[in-house]
Amino acid sequence: MNGGDILSLITVFVLAAFVGFEVIAKVPSTLHTPLMSGTNAIHGVVLVGAMLVLGTASSTSQMVLGFVAVVLATLNVVGGFVVTDRMLEMFKVRKSPAAPAEPVSTMAPSPEGGQK
């Protein structure tokens, strides 16, 4: 990688940092937990890096490291999105009573609700 490449990556880094700060300027406290969980899922993109390491591995040790990394990263990304979706599903249930004319079915307990 030459000097130009690292500079363009640093540019991307700085701009992304600003976007990260700006985009969540105002969050109601009720959404803090889902937002934390959602951002947690997004850094699961590390899976792409783990795939590159495993996919270009040329020795056993490389393959072991890459394999473990892919397993861990998949846990992060899959678990992260599923947990977040479960939390947000409940928010949807909570929101619907605001419109009293809604059919009863939308107020039925979510599938998770019944398991508790």
């Binding site: 990260g20 985009v23 951002t39 890096g49």
Partner: peptide
């Protein structure tokens, strides 16, 4: 990776 990681780091 840089974009997503930094987004999460900052936010």
């Amino acid at each position: 990776l840089v974009v997503a990681g930094t987004l999460v780091g900052a936010s």
